[in-house]
């Protein structure tokens, strides 16, 4: 069997399973899997109680790994994340106790409730793939996927993440309330108290890393790349945007597009992929001017505006080979 077809089947299986637990959130689930395949991290900004934790738990269980959860509080210290060396009196030496960051899948809950210092400890790990504790650099596992959640900025007692750190998340999305039908089904499911416990892993970490490899090989034509560049350049010249997309943002967008195409079971990207991921990949990287606020526009609206203004490549520039 064609390896990519097999991979596509695995992906759709993964999606179906997550959806069985987290009902009515197929889009969010799909985007999270896109981020997982693209090797990026996800920031979920949403109110409590919409199923963020459940979603991460489900994904972790399906990959057959455990997930670590860090509840960020104002008094959390960096060492609470990275781990610390403790003096072992029996053996008379310092012994490193790894922190929760040393896991494969991490749920960083309410990341904006802790101090910037502590936030940066996590973000360093996310960006560089290793942490330094007591002068020793320790590599993080190859599959290292962070799902951070944050309360909407307007809420009391929060420390907003600086732009440079937001840039390290591949996507920022919100889960939102389920619709009435799905929420009703939630109520009916009361008897089945723990749907998680019955889940079986559908793929291994190695398999996932192989899928990531396949994802990176998704073909993106020059036309699509130019389309990406048009988008990125438009964010840099837009009158309401103070700071447009950085080159890191461009690369992230390309990765996300590839992953989205892969999830859609294609080995080539199409403009629809770009349109689908662009709002989630780009919006949180923009720094808006005050004018945008006066016009009551947020980053998502601006991205949609830009998407609506850029011409889609639909014909061949050069003849077919």
């Amino acid at each position: 069997m064609n390896p990519s077809i097999e991979a596509h089947q695995t992906i759709s299986e993964l999606l179906d399973h997550v959806e069985r637990v987290v009902v009515g959130k197929r889009k969010a689930v799909k985007l999270i899997i896109v981020a997982l395949l693209a090797g990026g991290h996800v920031l979920i900004e949403d109110i409590p109680g919409v199923g963020k934790t459940l979603m991460v738990q489900t994904i972790a269980k399906l990959i057959g790994t455990d997930f670590k959860r860090i509840q960020f509080t104002p008094d959390l210290l960096p060492s609470d994340i990275t781990g610390l060396s403790i003096y072992n009196q029996k053996e008379s030496r310092f012994e490193f106790r790894p922190g929760p960051i040393m896991g494969n899948i991490i749920l960083a809950d309410e990341i904006n409730r802790t101090s910037p210092k502590t936030q940066s400890a996590l973000l360093e790990g996310m960006a560089e793939g290793h942490v330094t504790v007591d002068g020793v650099t320790r590599a993080l596992p190859e599959l290292f996927f962070v799902m951070a959640t944050q309360n909407p900025i307007e809420y009391e007692g929060t420390y907003a993440l600086p732009e440079a750190q937001l840039d390290r998340f591949l996507m920022k999305l919100s889960i939102g309330y389920p619709d009435r039908k799905h929420e009703l089904s939630l109520l009916d499911r009361d008897s089945d108290r723990d749907p998680l416990s019955r889940l079986k892993p559908v793929l291994s970490i190695d398999h996932l890393l192989y899928l990531r490899h396949l994802t990176a090989a998704v073909f993106v034509s020059d036309a699509i790349k130019n389309y990406l560049m048009d988008l990125v350049e438009a964010t840099r010249t837009h009158p309401s945007i103070a700071l447009g997309i950085s080159p890191r943002g461009t690369i992230s967008l390309l990765r996300a597009v590839q992953a989205y195409a892969f999830v859609a079971q294609r080995d080539y990207a199409i403009p629809d992929d770009v349109k689908a991921v662009a709002p989630y990949v780009l919006a949180h990287r923009l720094l808006l001017k005050a004018e945008a606020a006066y016009e009551q526009k947020d980053a998502h609206m601006l991205i949609q505006e830009i998407l609506a203004s850029i011409k889609i490549p639909v014909s061949l520039k050069e003849p077919l080979q």
Binding site: I270, P271, D272, K275, A308, S309, I310, I312, V314
Partner: peptide, 8 residues
């Protein structure tokens, strides 16, 4: 329209 993808 120019900004509409073929699939849309």
């Amino acid at each position: 329209s120019d900004s509409e993808t073929l699939r849309e």
